[in-house]
């Protein structure tokens, strides 16, 4: 167990350096002279050129340049926008809103997804089960930006039930529609995962034993089956974080939530390469940490799994 955790942390360190190296290479290794691009049409004096080359370490070998970038990241320096605002500042201002949106989405998908999944699982092959199966495929199939605009159009404008945009600063009420849209796709996955996990556990030996002991159906399903069925769902939630971050870019843009996803989208539009890289680097690190935590949690939660 301890050796598993040590190995898993080692793997995380490797993934951290390799993933940042990949991002660095993808963006900064693109052919072309960045200084020339900075100068545009105007001729650039040699002395200025020299200063800039030295300031950005462009005369150093590639791997040294990467080293400056990664030590910067470790010290919280994620670069600057064109108007010299540190990317970390942008993140500090915007991240809490994205976090709130994600937490609301998490709550929605857990409550509705797990309920629907358990419900379908204990009625395997009945009408309700088929209904949950088909409707989850349908929800998964609608790309989140189509779903977002649909929700905005029908629930927000035609029916007028919920506000169309989140507002600035967003109110709890304003977060509701984007959170539902963001939750929708993951909700379907949670429901399916819970369902198949419940179906599998209902056939297991310990559930048969529990039934044979004469325990009530409520206790067999509520305690024995339910708790064990949640293990794969919990691990899914960390992977889901990746989907939530991708989804947040789109939902925040559609519903005008001033969070980190919208900042990323605006930087893409404004061709602010440094900001795009800074935000994506941070998101990739968060994703890797979440996966690390969940893998370790999984080892603690499910002693049946052996790690050699």
């Amino acid at each position: 167990m301890t050796s598993y955790i040590i190995r898993r942390v080692g793997q995380f360190v490797l993934v951290f350096f390799a993933a940042t190296f990949l991002i660095f290479s993808m963006v900064f290794a693109i052919p072309g002279d960045p200084i020339r691009a900075l100068a545009g049409e105007k001729p650039m004096p040699d002395s200025l050129r020299q200063t800039l080359v030295q300031r950005y370490h462009l005369d150093e070998p590639y791997i040294v340049q990467y080293w400056y970038y990664v030590t910067g990241v470790l010290q919280g320096d994620l670069g600057e926008s064109f108007n010299q605002r540190p990317v970390l500042d942008i993140i500090k201002e915007r991240f809490p809103r994205t976090l709130r949106l994600a937490i609301y989405a998490f709550i929605i998908e857990m409550v509705i997804g797990v309920t629907a999944g358990v419900w379908a699982g204990i009625r395997k092959d009945k009408f309700l089960d088929s209904l949950v199966k088909v409707s989850t495929v349908a929800v998964i199939s609608i790309p989140i930006f189509v779903l977002g605009f649909m929700a905005q159009l029908f629930i927000g404008v035609r029916l007028g039930w919920l506000p169309v945009t989140a507002g600035n600063p967003p109110s709890l009420y304003g977060y509701l529609l984007p959170a539902i849209v963001l939750a929708a796709v993951s909700l379907a996955y949670v429901a399916r995962l819970t369902r198949s996990s419940v179906v599998e556990n209902l056939r297991s030996d310990y559930v048969r034993t529990a039934k044979a002991k004469g325990l009530s159906r409520r206790r067999v399903i509520g305690v024995h089956t339910f708790r064990n069925s949640l293990i794969p769902v919990i691990t899914f939630l960390a992977i889901d974080l990746g989907a939530l971050m991708g989804g947040a870019i789109i939902t925040e843009t559609i519903f005008n939530v001033p969070g980190i996803g919208q900042a990323l989208y605006q930087s893409v539009l404004g061709q602010e390469g440094a900001v795009v890289v800074g935000i994506v680097t941070l998101l990739v690190i968060i994703y890797a940490v979440a996966n690390l935590v969940v893998d370790v949690m999984y080892a603690v939660l499910d002693p049946r799994i052996r790690y050699d």
């Binding site: 990949l22 990323l264 990739v284």
Partner: peptide
Amino acid sequence: SRFTDIMFAIPLILGALVILNALA
């Protein structure tokens, strides 16, 4: 397997966004 872990650590939309943005 380690190489796969590394590629796996970057969510599809985010990774694609960084590269494609640079390919403007």
